[in-house]
């Protein structure tokens, strides 16, 4: 029994040695395989959610993303909707948004990019306030707070 334990221990240690030797040359393929696991995707709180609607104007495109209410076990009451302007974004952005696709405008957002000032007019009680309004590498991004009730 003692010898079996010794041999098992040595085998496990040598397996460890092999694992470390193949770790770095195989890191790319291990990482790609690992990234395909079902949980290896970013939470919508970080990505901003999937794009629900794209409003394309002459030089600028506005992506309205799906509202995000993600929680641990169930959706939360409060969340946000993310808007991304990309392309040649005008100095002053003014857009009325229907985030829930019910045919009614829910809020109007106005951004002065030069002054980094943002304002919002609310038409829907579920829309709360601007959470983030920031320049991004692709143009401008805004997150507007929402509640479910």
């Amino acid at each position: 029994m003692k010898n079996v334990r010794i041999i098992a221990g040595i085998c496990w240690a040598i397996a460890g040695l092999i694992l470390i030797i193949i770790l770095f040359p195989g890191l790319n393929s291990f990482s790609v395989s690992f990234s395909k696991l079902p949980f290896m995707k970013l939470n919508p709180r970080y990505t901003g959610g999937e794009i629900a609607t794209q409003l394309i104007s002459e030089k600028c495109t506005l992506d309205i993303r799906k509202p995000v209410f993600s929680g641990l076990l169930k959706e939360r009451n409060s969340g946000f909707v993310q808007l991304d302007w990309h392309g040649t974004v005008p100095g002053i952005i003014k857009d009325s948004i229907d985030y829930d696709n019910d045919g009614k405008k829910d809020f109007c957002i106005e951004v002065n990019r030069a002054k980094s000032e943002s304002g919002i007019q609310l038409y829907n009680s579920k829309v709360k306030k601007i959470l983030i309004s920031t320049p991004a590498s692709y143009g401008w991004a805004v997150r507007v707070g929402l509640s479910k009730e």
């Binding site: 990234s35 949980f39 995707k41 970013l42 970080y46």
Partner: peptide, 19 residues
């Protein structure tokens, strides 16, 4: 939630989550 709660890159780029 079957998702990662970090604003990084899953794969590719500097210090990605998978690697």
């Amino acid at each position: 939630t079957k998702s990662i709660i970090f604003p990084g890159s899953i794969i590719g780029g500097f210090a990605n989550i998978s690697s």
